[in-house]
Design a protein around this nucleic acid. Structure first.
Lengths: 160, 160
DNA sequence: TCAATATTGGCATTTTATGCCAATGCTGCG
DNA sequence: CGCAGCATTGGCATAAAATGCCAATATTGA
């Protein structure tokens, strides 16, 4: 694994919350001068520790007030896993999709405008896809926690 | 809802993928000069359409190779919902937590280093929390799709 | 304690952000 | 169809930030 010292962790921690800080602001936040701050940042990007910078939008402000988790079961005999994975990439309502152990089904997280929209997605898109044998939807009542920040504490031992 | 024209949508679309573009680069990407680009961007931030900028880290590079979804059932008689929601905020392994309709339970997405770490989390943290009566874990085999980008197509009608 | 190596801080230069104003494009009304 | 009024853009000047370089400082191991 990549060597990350305390200063690197500070950088990562700050940028996980404020990804568009200028180098100057970042430097101030981590208590280091701009030059080495920038060098470290470039290294973290280079090494791929920082995978991407993104703007997070407020779903409600763009008319996406509803959210659901959908469990999709595929007919195992059809060997359509790759095709399904491919199709998922093209469905913008699907924000995440994971292949799950155990039942070997898929868990999708879906955002949508209203029930009509969701209904269309399930009926016209999901259920039309070859190999999809069943779909179980659970609606989100409330987002209790929603973060993109990964924990870093496990790296902050002696000088890891 | 906030008025967003075609140009605003282009800005949002670009920044959902590359959140740290300079204003100059953003302007070029959306084919507009820097001045109005910056004005629009500030407005989108001001209005709260853009909620936050973040750096996304590569889990594997920081030793977080495993992921699971955990369904948590609370004893409804104990009225501990708020306390649970509060506690979740302080558990860094929990990346998202949603209250679900139907069974009225919680669905957590959890990242961790190894099974020992996960085991500790479940035994020492989750199951120790008052009101937690049951926990069902499903491990992620594969992340098929993982995006923070919300769909914008539904806003791109005539001139909405 | 000293030498070798890695890291930092500060400065000069290039690039970018930002505020302002005139020019351009759009809208609605006569 | 043309014009007035409003909104948006482009470009320029100034302020701020990024970036590369080098000497100074800190760290490591013997």
């Amino acid at each position: 694994m990549i060597e990350l010292d305390k200063t690197d962790l500070k950088i990562l921690s700050v940028l996980q919350q404020e990804g568009r800080l200028s180098n100057l602001e970042l430097a101030e936040a981590i208590n280091l001068s701009p030059s080495p701050t920038l060098r470290r940042l470039k290294r973290l990007e280079q090494e791929g520790v920082i995978a991407q910078y993104v703007a997070l939008l407020e779903p409600a402000k763009i008319g996406l007030g509803l959210e659901a988790f959908v469990r999709v079961m595929l007919d195992k005999r059809e060997r359509q896993f790759a095709a399904f994975a491919q199709a998922v990439q093209g469905w913008p309502e699907v924000v995440t999709c994971h292949a799950m152990a155990g039942e070997m089904d898929y868990l999708l997280r879906v955002v949508f405008e209203d029930l009509a929209h969701f209904s269309r997605f399930v009926m016209d898109t999901l259920l039309q896809h070859p190999g999809v044998v069943d779909v179980k939807s659970s609606f989100v009542l409330q987002a209790i926690k929603q973060t993109t920040a990964l924990p870093l504490a496990h790296l902050a031992r002696p000088q890891g």
